[in-house]
Design a protein around this nucleic acid. Structure first.
Lengths: 189, 189
DNA sequence: GTCTATAGGGGGATAGAC
DNA sequence: GTCTATCCCCCTATAGAC
């Protein structure tokens, strides 16, 4: 009763967990296969190379984000949008996981070219959404209009990526919550 | 004419570059040996295991930081201390490198136990310095006393770690500068 | 301190049968 | 779609000569 791409989906889900737990180079096709009760050659059937798997993972993140962002369109509140967005990173931190940007980013120097490009595209997509959200919030008086919009956007992106990482290193998700609390305090009017 | 531990030092320096460029698992003892014109067995003479090398790297970071922090004692200005501290992360971003926390942090799930502990100790050392610096700055009226001190500290740590990473991913060090500019704007009175 | 040589295990990837 | 079998490479680490 399996759908055609059930295995493919299962591979992606396992790979995502490994990625966020210990990085892209932390897992092998053999690991994925063993977890799913198949052989590594079968994983290669779905993803011809690890590069292809990395690209697929990143495209998945981007599509998920875009779907979510579309669902929030016309929410009418920049503050509510950002709070909801932060919830995702908070949940990562609680599980001791980090975001895709941080996971791939640390190994950037040895990522295949196409993976690098997809990673850049993902970050760009998120950056544009944050920027637009802050801009709309400034106009509505919900977001402090201190400093340049691009600088404010950069701080938000840095804080979420760094927040999940320091939470994991210190072993306490609370530190991510703390960083996000202060971020809201300096952003919101 | 080499000092006794010249090779050891050279190994550490090469390893640091690999680490900040592509992570702890990105380089092997063979890589280090080849770069230095020796054999991998000789690297093992200086560092019996990769775990030992990781620990030595982190202890080096911590000692460097502590020396630097001691040199700034009684500088009299929290703003000046933080600006100087941010210069380090700015320089990493310009080289396309990330900080040790980000480099080790992404692979946290598969780091040897002692490396994890040293990483925690390094972050804790830095966290305490940031906290104390912000606290002193608040008393002197240099730092905004908005919100909890611990939340403010967490945001600063998250921003520097995340800032260097997004700079590398986007390929532009400017985004780290932007994040740090806004960080100063929201911290300084 | 550095070497040669090697053990013992994983890694990505492919060919070809079923 | 999944399998067996395999290639060829890299990895960490060690033994023992020099």
């Amino acid at each position: 009763m399996k759908a055609v791409s059930d295995t493919r989906q299962a591979i992606l889900e396992r790979a995502e967990r490994y990625l966020q737990d210990a990085g892209f180079s932390s897992f092998s096709f053999r690991d994925l296969a063993a977890d799913l009760g198949i052989k590594s050659a079968s994983v290669h059937y779905h993803f011809p190379s690890k590069e292809a798997l990395g690209v697929a993972l990143l495209q998945g993140y981007r599509e998920s984000f875009e779907r979510w962002a579309a669902s929030r369109r016309d929410s009418g509140s920049a503050q509510a949008d950002l709070v909801e967005w932060l919830r995702y990173y908070r949940s990562l931190a609680r599980k001791g996981d980090i975001c895709a940007g941080g996971a791939f980013g640390a190994e950037y120097g040895e990522l295949p070219e196409r993976v690098r490009r997809e990673l850049g595209a993902l970050l760009d997509t998120i950056r544009k959404w944050v920027r637009a959200t802050l801009e709309a919030g400034r106009k509505r008086g919900e977001i402090r209009a201190d400093g340049k919009l691009d600088d404010q956007t950069a701080l938000v992106l840095a804080a979420v990526q760094g927040g999940t990482q320091i939470a994991r290193i210190t072993g306490s998700p609370k530190i991510a919550d703390a960083a996000f609390e202060h971020l809201k305090a300096v952003l919101f009017t």
